[in-house]
Design a protein around this nucleic acid. Structure first.
Lengths: 186, 186
DNA sequence: ATGATTCTACCTATCAGTAGATAGGCAAAA
DNA sequence: TTTTGCCTATCTACTGATAGGTAGAATCAT
């Protein structure tokens, strides 16, 4: 019982919530199931996150913030575009390996019609962050730079989506290899 | 009340069901809401489709069968790969234009963890059908032919997923254009 | 330093709403 | 006379959300 207990519960809720969303989607996120996982009662989740929309937005925000830090790290440790893209595609790969999960934002985009507006705001922020990073790493210029970057993000998300459907990470690996071979990214 | 009434109800259920799944996902598919749309009671849906899994599988099967017919048609009316691919990507585009919907199978793949096994079987069949058609149209050969075809399907699905998130068909169009420019397909 | 107050982080109990599914009935058609 | 295609009514399970209570920690005034 250290003085970090209060933060720990909130973190535990977010951790468990992220796992559920990435594995089964936002609609499958249940306060009761979440509470059972964390070890508290469902009413206590509402104390930390008044509505489900608040929880979803917090999840997306934390996810995007984490991605931003990882992207900075990739720039620091990898010198060239190919290595950086290897690290980047590796993030999406890791989600598949870890319990066949999807990118939190990818699965939220699929459920767009049922998502509260405050969640979609964070989803858009994640996409913008990825586009900006890819534009920089791939040294894209001109009026179509953002579109090229979004195409790369789209392709990788699609690869994750279908590989997940097949339940085999090797599908993802081979699709990424096909993208590289086609020259979509280095 | 013609003698086609019995078939009409079943068709109406499937039509309404497909619209809901493509717009909001399999989890959002509700017997009560479906019944209200069709104009019957929810218990009557169970008469035609005993369980939700049966309905989901029927939806995926009909969707795949429809795609198979469309693919044959594309081969018949379009002579070259580029035109055929234009028709193919147009199908995914049409879903977006029509109430910002997604490919039925794409959204089902995203919800994989909650899908009954009988539905996933049909999802796999749809993917196999697309891969086979793309392999033929793109004249892919060698041991990596299927992988290249799956990469094309993945990329297009990803484009649809993110364009839908952005709520703008132009995003899809530009992403497809970027794929073509990169040489992913003609 | 201490007593009073307020805040934190949970709890129990409950609400209205919806989920899929089933039992049994009924009118019309085959 | 049986089958078809629907109906009403009901079941259990679960959803997010709220009301109200409480032990303990923190903060405040004296």
């Amino acid at each position: 019982m250290t003085d970090t207990t209060k933060l720990d519960t909130r973190q535990a809720i977010l951790d468990a919530g992220q796992a559920v969303v990435q594995a089964r989607g936002y609609n499958a996120l249940s306060f009761r199931e979440l509470a059972k996982t964390v070890g508290i009662k469902s009413a206590s989740i509402h104390y930390h996150f008044p509505t489900k929309g608040d929880l979803g937005a917090a999840l997306a925000k934390r996810y995007t913030d984490g991605a931003a830090k990882a992207f900075e790290h990739f720039l620091a440790v990898a010198p060239d575009a190919a290595t950086r893209m290897g690290l980047y595609t590796g993030v999406f790969r890791a989600a598949l390996v870890n319990d066949n999960r999807m990118c939190l934002v990818g699965i939220m985009a699929a459920e767009k019609a049922d998502m509260p507006a405050e969640v979609m705001v964070e989803v858009e922020r994640f996409i913008a962050l990825n586009v900006a990073w890819l534009t920089q790493v791939l040294d894209l210029t001109g009026p179509e730079a953002d579109q090229k970057a979004l195409a790369v993000l789209s392709a990788i998300n699609g690869a994750q989506l279908l590989a997940r459907g097949g339940g085999d990470v090797a599908i993802y690996d081979r699709t990424i290899a096909a993208y590289r071979a086609a020259g979509l990214f280095p």
